[in-house]
Design a protein around this nucleic acid. Structure first.
Length: 109
DNA sequence: GGCTGGGCACTAT
DNA sequence: TATAGTGCCCAGC
């Protein structure tokens, strides 16, 4: 309905998951939501990242959308910062997007 | 304190 | 590319 808030346990699980993404890999918002036990809450994941302190040690930049693209305007500062961090880890961009087949984090591997 | 409307770092057709 | 479905959150009443 209205006035809901992100469950604390869900939050914790998402943070833990993000911290578990290996260097050089990426994960989708929906993927994290599902792993955290709430399949339809991809949007909440995005909200969590937005509220994250800028100096947080969490690798928030390894979270992108299901199309393999960064969820910011291509010319924005945030976009370039995120892209640079990923490229510095060996994640390559082709036409502003990542090859998920190659770089998506598979929880089991 | 309760409701509503609108904005989003989303996804699936 | 566009549209619909979905959920979190904030600003005004």
């Amino acid at each position: 309905m209205h006035n809901s808030s992100i469950d604390d346990a869900f939050k914790e699980r998402v943070y833990t998951l993000i911290g578990s993404i290996p260097v050089g890999k990426v994960a989708a918002y929906g993927q994290l939501a599902k792993l955290a036990g709430a399949a339809n809450q991809s949007r909440a994941v995005g909200r969590l990242l937005k509220n994250l302190p800028a100096q947080s040690s969490l690798p928030w930049f390894r979270v992108i959308n299901s199309q393999g693209k960064i969820s910011f305007p291509v010319s924005s500062e945030k976009y370039m910062q995120q892209r640079q961090l990923l490229e510095s880890e060996g994640v390559m961009f082709i036409n502003d997007k990542v090859n998920l087949k190659k770089y998506q984090w598979l929880e089991d591997s």
